Simulated assay, not measured.
Amino acid sequence: MTFPSEPLPPDPADNASADGVWSKQIAPKIVRFKDLARCGDEIWIEHQGMLYRLRETRQGKLILTK
């Protein structure tokens, strides 16, 4: 997996005057975890009939388990 060489732009939720800058500067496949897990610290992902749990630890790390 490759990541953009430039830092992520500010979160539009943190800046009401973003005016769509976020969608123009970053590839649409990059999604912040906090946007996926809006109401908690985990999400469940279905992939090819299998369920995976992606959760954030207290230290801010992500763990993916079957």
Rank of each mutant, 00 (worst) to 15 (best):
A18P: 01
P12E: 05
L51M: 14
R32W: 07
T57L: 05
I30S: 05
P10C: 11
H47E: 13
D19I: 05
D11K: 10
Q48R: 15
T2Y: 13
K29M: 06
A27G: 07
T65K: 13
A18Q: 10
G60T: 02
L36N: 01
S23N: 09
K24L: 14
V31Y: 00
L54C: 13
G20Y: 03
I30A: 08
D35S: 09
F3K: 10
M50S: 13
G40H: 03
A13Q: 12
H47N: 06
K34Q: 10
E42Q: 15
R53C: 09
K61F: 13
I45F: 06
L64E: 06
P4G: 10
R38K: 15
S5M: 08
F33R: 00
L51A: 09
N15P: 01
Q59N: 09
R58Q: 13
T2W: 07
K66L: 14
T2Q: 14
Q59C: 03
L64V: 08
Y52W: 14
N15M: 11
C39N: 11
I43C: 01
G60A: 04
L64G: 03
G60P: 01
L8Q: 06
R38I: 10
D11E: 13
A13T: 07
M1I: 07
R58E: 15
I63W: 10
I63M: 14
T65M: 12
D19V: 07
K34D: 08
R55E: 00
R32I: 05
E46P: 01
R53A: 06
K34C: 03
D11A: 05
F33N: 00
I43K: 00
L51T: 08
I63E: 15
R32P: 02
P7S: 13
P9G: 06
L54M: 14
R32K: 11
